[in-house]
Design a protein around this nucleic acid. Structure first.
Length: 768
RNA sequence: GCCGGUGUGGCGGAAUUGGCAGACGCACAUGACUCAAAAUCAUGCGGGUAACACCGUGCCGGUUCGAGUCCGGCCACCGGCACCA
């Protein structure tokens, strides 16, 4: 009689053996075909692993284990994205150095991951807070600086009132801080910026060459927000002054009935003395400036504004005089900060015109019939044709756009122009626990980069990590660190005290895994050439416009510098759905629906947890946790275990099972590669049900099942392999092959339809 | 408002290119084993009927011998962006 399945002993036993045998150590043999599987490295928080973590990790562990058995040299690494605010806050609160906090959290996370039996090559573990690592983060920053892509700018930034830190646009959600939910206000500060906008076009265009799930591509494109249009110069009446606007609808130029400029537009101050209602203008500007981002979005629908008294503009195409208004629906940060308003054909202009009773001129008519612009703006480009527009009359909108652009360029009153919603990346953080920015400021020489030989610039020990109310980094108080000499002239200079954002270390970590202990370069040329690009990268949708975009930007920059051999870092990108609580809500302490993976591993075993998380539902959709579902998966593994008792000694497949075996191999092989883990497992469940139905399984069938199941449940399958006398280890065996011809059942179907294809097989035949 | 996604049993979810809807699992019911329970095993399990018939994939219509799948028009929910000219 077979022994009972005891997951405690089985899992401990095999984890130890794998470690001793260095089972998953990556081979340095660059002649083998390679496969680079990557999951987002976690932030080692104090809470420990969440049940959400194992979902993507198990998925790519499955693929990695399968690919190894198929003869690939697989790189499946893990590390720690360990700089960041929660660690720093915890350190402040508990008076422990962030370094110690990180060390403890990493140890906990690593233990948890190891208890789940992942096939990571732990010899390649990396940590972004390790000076040997962040040396290269700083090195890349210097490259960016020397290429003119890192610059310092005095600008209004998103300031989180609670974290006391500047945020990137991507980190502000609905006007509040993405991390803590506190309101974000504008604050003018001198900040380090990275020119991601320089890469806007490449970041869009090269999406064509990679295999990302569609919604990721769409989100990135929308976020970058490319639009094609024209800039047009209007003339301020009686002044030698042009007022330049940006528009995507140059075809509607004859319909412009007024102009609007942003409250921050510099022209307002310039003509201060000539504006007849200065006090009113001043009041409006103050009100607009006081609005927080949150209020601005809340009040977005209701248009406000004030006319600029004593000013008017001339439409360059027809010489008509039109008024100029200021309103906060025009943003200084986009285009030129000024627009021509065409209320008949733009919804926002229409609302504004209705509210202030401004005139409208219709210049586009519906092709299929008249439209009433008193009801709503007519904005449909596809079904319009031009009217009231002199030389454009009768043209389709798209034709008219081009004709007008030509006209503007010919007459020298405008030009074609592409704009982006994407802003440059605010790269400064006024916090302690981040990479120091390797720049010094010298009165004489300006911002001077450190020499490469001075890297890493170590994070100094400070007495207090407390963020300051005045917006200065805690490092600023370290005067003996701050005061230094200029690398350029040798005179007195001050170090930069802001640190890098958490996104810095994660923007290139996948490069380091290829050669993690290199002291001469971020990775050797050979390693990069062999391993890149990452073949399959899985990660959360929440990083689409943050980490994923940032790292593509850095990679493209490094490519242009000749440092990496590929234009794109990741060939394939997939995303997993969230695991929700039993009640269908997001897991959180306050809702009391949090499941701790340690408890599941303890009670049911890692193999059960892995199987369950893969079986829970479609990989890309969110799914609710169910303890009964966990039990079902445990039951399945026990039934696999007990197949021993009905095993026969035959090495091959029995005749009646042959088709089923080949079908299952095919299904599992394909499903593992296409995110359909749930149906792969269902196929294996169906297979063992068949074994039990006939109360027999051959040794050959059992071995195939064990191999197919091994990537999902690696411990129990190694144990079974050993019990039934399999040679060597499952992890180093060969992935089963299937014969396409043997997957087809010989059926009555063919006889019934007399071998005809479905198109020729008519309904009556099928009835007969 | 714009973009993307999803609607299938009591529940999670399956259904290559249109071809037996509900695979697989959970829950439930009945039976076997047990003094009993749990576990395990067996059987059943969309609605409807004594059994058929018949009705069933969010709603309305269309194409087709045949529609969960394709086309047109709606509705609901989820996610993202949100005054980007």
């Amino acid at each position: 009689m077979a022994e009972m399945y005891n997951h405690h002993t089985v899992e401990k036993k095999w984890q130890k053996i794998w470690e001793e045998e260095k089972a998953f150590k990556v081979s340095e043999d660059y002649s083998k075909p390679k496969f680079y599987a990557l999951v987002e490295f976690p932030y080692p928080s104090g809470q420990g692993l969440h049940v959400g973590h194992p979902r993507p990790y198990t998925a790519l562990d499955i693929v990695s284990r399968k690919r190894r058995m198929q003869g690939y040299n697989v790189l499946f690494p893990m590390g720690w994205d360990a700089f960041g605010l929660p660690t720093e806050n915890y350190a402040i609160k508990n008076h422990i150095h962030p370094k110690i906090v990180t060390k403890n959290n990493v140890a906990r996370f690593k233990g948890q991951l190891q208890s789940l039996g992942y096939s990571f090559d732990w010899d390649r573990e990396i940590n972004t807070t390790d000076p040997d690592y962040y040396k290269w983060t700083q090195w890349i920053f210097l490259k960016l600086f020397n290429a003119g892509l890192a610059y310092k700018k005095e600008m209004p930034i998103n300031w989180c009132t609670s974290c006391k830190v500047g945020l990137a646009n991507e980190e502000v959600v609905n006007g509040v801080c993405e991390r803590c939910g506190a309101p974000v206000v504008r604050k003018v500060k001198s900040e380090w910026m990275l020119k991601i906008t320089e890469y806007a076009d490449k970041l869009i265009k090269d999406l064509d060459d990679v295999d990302y799930i569609e919604k990721v591509k769409v989100s990135q494109k929308n976020w970058i927000g490319r639009s094609e249009g024209a800039e047009v110069d209007f003339i301020l009446k009686d002044k030698d002054e042009k007022l330049r606007v940006y528009t995507t609808r140059p075809d509607t130029l004859f319909g412009a009935t007024y102009m609007v400029i942003s409250p921050e537009h510099p022209l307002i101050d310039k003509y201060k003395d000539e504006i007849t209602n200065w006090e009113e203008i001043q009041k409006y500007r103050e009100m607009a400036a006081r609005k927080s981002d949150f209020e601005r979005t809340e009040l977005a629908k209701d248009k406000t504004g004030v006319v600029l008294g004593g000013m008017s503009a001339i439409n360059p195409v027809n010489g008509k005089e039109i008024p100029v208004w200021i309103s906060d629906y025009v943003l200084m940060s986009y285009g030129t900060g000024a627009i021509m308003a065409v209320p008949a054909h733009d919804t926002r202009d229409w609302e504004f015109a209705k509210k202030f009773d401004l005139p409208m001129i219709q210049v586009v008519e519906g092709k299929e019939g008249p439209v009433d612009i008193n009801e709503a703006a007519f904005t449909d480009v596809a079904t319009g044709k031009m009217i009231n527009s002199e030389f454009l009359d009768g043209l389709e909108v798209t034709e008219a756009k081009e004709k007008m652009k030509d006209f503007l360029e010919e007459k020298g009153i405008g030009n074609r122009k592409v704009n982006y919603k994407l802003r440059d990346w605010v790269f400064s953080r006024q916090r302690y626990w981040g990479e120091p920015i390797p720049i010094v400021h010298c009165e004489k020489c300006g911002y001077v980069p450190l020499d490469e030989s001075e890297l890493p610039l170590l994070l100094p020990e400070v007495d207090s990590y407390m963020p300051t109310d005045n917006g200065e980094s805690p490092l600023a108080a370290m005067t003996d660190w701050v005061n230094t000499t200029c690398p350029c002239c040798g005179g007195p200079a001050k170090r930069e005290t802001d640190t890098m954002p958490q996104w810095a270390g994660s923007s290139w970590y996948f490069l380091r895994y290829t050669d993690p202990h290199n002291t001469e370069a971020l990775a050797s040329k050979e390693a990069l050439k062999y391993w890149l690009p990452v073949d399959w990268y899985n990660g959360g949708m929440e990083h689409t416009t943050l980490h994923l975009l940032y790292s593509r930007f850095w990679h493209k920059f490094l490519y242009d510098q000749g440092i990496v051999p590929t234009k794109e870092p990741y060939q394939r990108r997939t995303s997993h759905g969230m695991i929700l609580g039993e009640n269908g809500e997001k897991m959180s302490k306050s809702r009391g629906n949090v499941v701790n993976p340690d408890d599941i591993v303890q009670a049911y075993g890692a193999d059960t947890l892995r199987t369950y998380e893969m079986f829970i539902g479609a990989f890309d959709l969110s799914a609710s946790w169910s303890e009964d579902g966990v039990k079902g998966c445990r039951r399945f593994l026990e039934r696999v275990w007990k197949l021993q008792t009905i095993m026969t000694d035959e090495e091959g497949y029995s005749a009646d099972m042959e088709t089923k075996m080949h079908q299952t191999i095919k299904k599992v092989s394909q499903d593992f590669e296409s995110l359909k883990y749930n149906t792969a497992i269902a196929a294996m469940m169906a297979l063992i049900n068949d074994f039990y139905k006939k109360n027999a399984v051959t040794k050959g069938e059992y071995k195939t099942l064990i191999t197919l199941l091994n990537p999902v449940a690696p411990h129990i399958t190694e144990e079974l392999w050993q019990i039934i006398g399999g040679e060597g280890r499952v992890y180093e065996t060969t992935w089963p092959e299937y014969d396409e011809a043997k997957t087809v059942e010989s059926t009555v179907e063919i006889a019934r339809c007399s071998g005809q294809r479905k198109d020729t097989c008519n309904f009556e035949d099928r009835q007969g």
